[in-house]
Design a binder for these strands. Structure first.
Lengths: 180, 180
DNA sequence: TGTTGCATTGCAACTCGTTGCATAGTACGG
DNA sequence: CCGTACTATGCAACGAGTTGCAATGCAACA
């Protein structure tokens, strides 16, 4: 139940409409917490009744009106409260790990080609993180306190992709399928 | 929707009761796919109507009777079919990443102590994987084809914990909080 | 002019998984 | 003898998230 909090963080940084949030969740924040626009609208509604956020309608010309949400004092309180409660370690859930584990009962070639595809996805994502870091934080030693969180999260993504690539390589090597 | 398939893999290796499966999901397979016993019983029921597994009742003395499930031919077919369909990349969902990202709006000390706790959990899990590898695969060069899947999954866990530790260290270092 | 795509919000139905509860016999430690 | 823990199976209610669908009005492209 942390989508609420992900939204609060996002709104604490900058007010946004549901649509804006949906796009943010497709990009930056979405790298470690995905959400569809349907889900976002639903949760925003609940958060508004909880007084964590408040909306005001912005009329636009040429495009539909939008509701811009801002975090409230209560929302900030909730963020603080939440940040000081221990985080449960969420179990990994990896379908491809199940497939690899069950390789003797599966289609070996298909799974290996799946692994190759996944490797490429990791490489692409890694490149994205790298570019993003180079753009926003060209000088890592000059990162301010307020940017540090975002930077560290980017690092997490980066490291995770590296690990993902390394694991794929081990698999492909183990099955002698790393030549293409 | 891969719990079915995780169960199929488990049953393909060895028949089991729901209770047995629940314990396996607390241990080996559970490292990359968690499931509660309630969930397992529910899914087993569905799988039985789908003819993927079949159960026979085993009467026991001194303890409750149990239903031992075995994979069927159809179950094996399904496993094969599933293994040859592409695996969607499941998005990461990390509550602690949200907290780190939102650190400027949260309780800094609490989050950092949370990170320290998490680091310890990673260390413990890493040790567990290490011990497990040493016990089951003392000689990595002598691993047979049928064990390879299980071994590689263990490797994935190992690498992930390492990455987790490294990330925690970066955070603690960045905030100058790595002394304890 | 027709089609595609963007901006914007939302509902309804469904699936997956969690939490809480229930039952029941045995074994073991205090 | 009492409480706790283990073996064993399951239901009911709920919550989170996904999939599918809908509306509207503008801009750009073919």
């Amino acid at each position: 139940m942390a989508l609420e909090h992900a939204i609060l963080v996002s709104l604490a940084e900058k007010t946004a409409s549901g649509y804006d949030l949906a796009r943010r969740f497709d990009a930056s924040i979405g790298h470690f917490w995905k959400a569809s626009h349907q889900q976002i609208y639903k949760v925003l509604g609940r958060m508004e009744s909880d007084k964590w956020v408040e909306a005001h309608l912005v009329e636009q010309s040429g495009r539909p009106d939008k509701k811009v949400y801002a975090i409230t004092g209560e929302g900030r309180d909730e963020l603080l409260r939440w940040s000081s409660t221990p985080t449960p370690i969420e179990p990994t859930r990896s379908e491809i790990a199940v497939k690899v584990r069950g390789l003797p009962f599966g289609d070996r070639e298909a799974v290996l080609s799946d692994v190759r595809t996944r490797r490429e996805a990791h490489v692409a994502q890694l490149a994205y993180y790298e570019a993003s870091a180079a753009k926003h934080y060209p000088d890592p030693s000059a990162i301010g306190e307020d940017e540090l969180g975002a930077y560290l999260v980017l690092r997490a993504g980066f490291m995770q992709e590296q690990t993902g690539i390394a694991w794929c390589d081990e698999i492909l090597q183990a099955f002698g399928a790393d030549e293409r």
